[in-house]
Simulated scan of single mutants.
Amino acid sequence: MNYWLVKSEPDAYSWDDFVKQGKAVWDGVRNYQARNNLAAMRLNDQVLFYHSVAGKQVVGLARVSRESYPDPTIPEDPRWVVVELEPVAALPKPVTLQQIKTEPLLQNIPLIRHSRLSVVPISTNEFECILALGHA
Score class of each variant (00 low, 15 high):
Asp71Ala: 11
Gly60Asn: 03
Ser68Ile: 00
Ala62Arg: 01
Asp71Phe: 11
Ser68Arg: 08
Val83Leu: 08
Ala54Val: 12
Val64Ile: 13
Ala34Ile: 04
Asn36Ser: 13
Leu48Arg: 07
Val29Trp: 10
Asp27Trp: 01
Asn37Gln: 12
Gln46Arg: 15
Leu43Pro: 00
Val58Asp: 01
Leu48Gly: 02
Tyr69His: 15
Pro72Asp: 06
Ala54Ser: 13
Val82Met: 09
Pro78Asn: 12
Phe49Thr: 01
Pro75Gln: 11
Arg66Val: 02
Arg35Pro: 00
Gly60Thr: 03
Ala40Met: 12
Pro70Ala: 11
Val29Phe: 08
Val81Glu: 08
Val81Tyr: 14
Leu38Ser: 08
His51Arg: 05
Ala89Glu: 14
Leu38Tyr: 10
Val83Glu: 06
Gly28Ser: 08
Val29Ser: 03
Asp45Lys: 03
Asp27Cys: 00
Leu43Asp: 09
Pro78Thr: 11
Asp27Ser: 14
Trp80Gly: 04
Trp80Asn: 08
Pro78Ser: 13
Val53Asn: 15
Leu48Ala: 04
Thr73Glu: 12
Asp27Thr: 10
Ala39Lys: 15
Asn37Ala: 13
Ala89Ile: 04
Ala90Leu: 02
Val88Ile: 15
Pro70Gly: 04
Glu86Val: 13
Ala89Pro: 00
Asp71Met: 10
Gln33Met: 12
Asn37Gly: 06
Asp71Ile: 08
Ser65Thr: 14
Val53Gln: 15
Val83Tyr: 10
His51Lys: 04
Ala54His: 15
Arg30Met: 07
Asp71Trp: 11
Glu67Ser: 13
Phe49His: 00
Gln33Thr: 10
Ala54Lys: 15
Asp45Ala: 04
Pro87Ala: 08
Leu85Ile: 07
Ala34Lys: 05
Asn44Phe: 07
Asp77Phe: 08
His51Thr: 03
Val29Glu: 07
Pro78Met: 02
Asp27Asn: 13
Gly60Ser: 01
Lys56Pro: 01
Lys56Leu: 10
Ala40Glu: 06
Ala62Tyr: 05
Val88Trp: 12
Thr73Phe: 08
Asp77Gly: 05
Val29Asp: 06
Val29Ala: 10
Leu91Gln: 05
Tyr69Asn: 02
Asn44Gln: 14
Pro72Val: 10
Ala62Trp: 02
Val64Gly: 07
Gln57Glu: 15
